[in-house]
Design a protein around this nucleic acid. Sequence first.
DNA 1: CAATAGTTTAGAATTATTATAATGTAGATT
DNA 2: AATCTACATTATAATAATTCTAAACTATTG
Lengths: 142, 142
Amino acid sequence: MPKNCNFIEKLREVGLRPTKQRIKMCEVLYNREKTFHFTINDLVKMISEQMNQKISLATVYNTVHAFEKKGYLKEISIDSHKSYFDTNTSAHHHFFDEDTHELIDCDESDIDKINIRKKITGKKINSVELLVRVASDNQTQK
Amino acid sequence: MPKNCNFIEKLREVGLRPTKQRIKMCEVLYNREKTFHFTINDLVKMISEQMNQKISLATVYNTVHAFEKKGYLKEISIDSHKSYFDTNTSAHHHFFDEDTHELIDCDESDIDKINIRKKITGKKINSVELLVRVASDNQTQK
DNA sequence: CAATAGTTTAGAATTATTATAATGTAGATT
DNA sequence: AATCTACATTATAATAATTCTAAACTATTG
């Protein structure tokens, strides 16, 4: 999604009513240089603290899921008890820093093309996602 | 873990006390031909129904986590709101059938070697896991 | 500008998981 | 073998993440 654009139009295009809350969320999520990762909790904090906007937790859940369904957000499963979302909706892989719990995007050049030999009859591949878990290397420091 | 073996010894080897509950869990998990995937809930059902053994939910959680820490089980993150465990603790990739919510192991030959170019200074790679999501292909059925 | 269909909201409900504290038990010590 | 002690198990309470509910609200349609 381009920045500083008319989020109202964008929302309408995919059939989401451009409500105050949704526009506010678009601003928080997409008016920035780079894509980023967040949890629902992060987002609630950002909206209430940064934007000084009262918003119901249920609305944040609803809206995040609405955005996800419409392709504005992507969910990433790393941690079994926390949902991470990514404003980068293109197919890409991740590093996950187990020390800091930070999620790092990979770009095309970071991972060689992945070739999947296995085919499952009657099923098509929806996504191919790699998660590379890293942690501080205290052993091999030369 | 070999089948029909002395689970008591196996548990002791890694410093886990061979309690009634842990031995029962070993039987359920490892007295079988193939490795498999399960959720905590699946396991509770298996123990209570198949084995006719009363076991506390807390014990199942404790024991699964003890087994995980000792390398008897591996956790797999697919779904943000459910933890899956795998009795196959070797490094391997998965297919996830989004229709049936079934998890399918890949073996060596299913995926070509994955080459990771990106390096993060001071960090070592702990694991490289691929998840291939599939779903029924209603379009391209020739 | 009224109707209506979708949205927001606070709070309750649900679900998965972890903590607690009492009781039980495996393995070591006598 | 009886006793001790540290670790385990248990039922239940607590917590955390998420979803549901039903009433109030609001964007769009006519």
